[in-house]
Amino acid sequence: MSAQPGRPHQPDRVPRNAEGIAAALSGERRMEFYRQLLAAAPEDAEAVLRRWWCEAMLDTDPDADRITRAALDGSLPTATLDEVVSHRRELGLPVD
Rank of each mutant, 00 (worst) to 15 (best):
R13V: 12
R89Q: 07
E32F: 15
S26N: 15
A56D: 07
E83V: 10
E90P: 05
L38P: 05
T68E: 15
L81S: 09
A41F: 08
V48N: 02
G74Q: 00
R16C: 10
V48T: 02
A24C: 05
V95W: 05
E19Q: 09
Q4V: 12
R13K: 14
N17F: 01
D61W: 12
M57Y: 07
N17E: 08
D44T: 07
L37E: 02
S75R: 13
V85R: 08
G92N: 00
Y34E: 13
R35I: 10
R88T: 07
I21G: 04
T80P: 01
D12K: 03
R88P: 07
Q36C: 15
F33Q: 02
I67V: 08
E83T: 09
T78S: 09
A18E: 00
A47C: 06
Q36L: 13
L81Q: 14
W53I: 04
G20K: 00
D82K: 15
I67C: 06
L58R: 14
D63I: 06
G27Y: 02
R69C: 06
A70Q: 15
A24W: 04
Q4N: 11
E83R: 04
D63K: 03
R13H: 07
M31C: 11
R88C: 08
G27V: 10
M1E: 15
G74T: 05
Y34C: 10
R30W: 08
R29A: 07
G6E: 01
P42D: 03
G20V: 04
P77Q: 05
R88N: 13
W52H: 01
E83K: 00
V84W: 02
A47M: 12
D59C: 11
A22W: 02
L37R: 15
D61L: 12
Q4K: 02
D73L: 00
D12F: 15
M57I: 14
L76V: 04
N17W: 00
Q4H: 06
P15M: 01
A70T: 11
L72W: 10
P5D: 03
Q10P: 03
E19S: 12
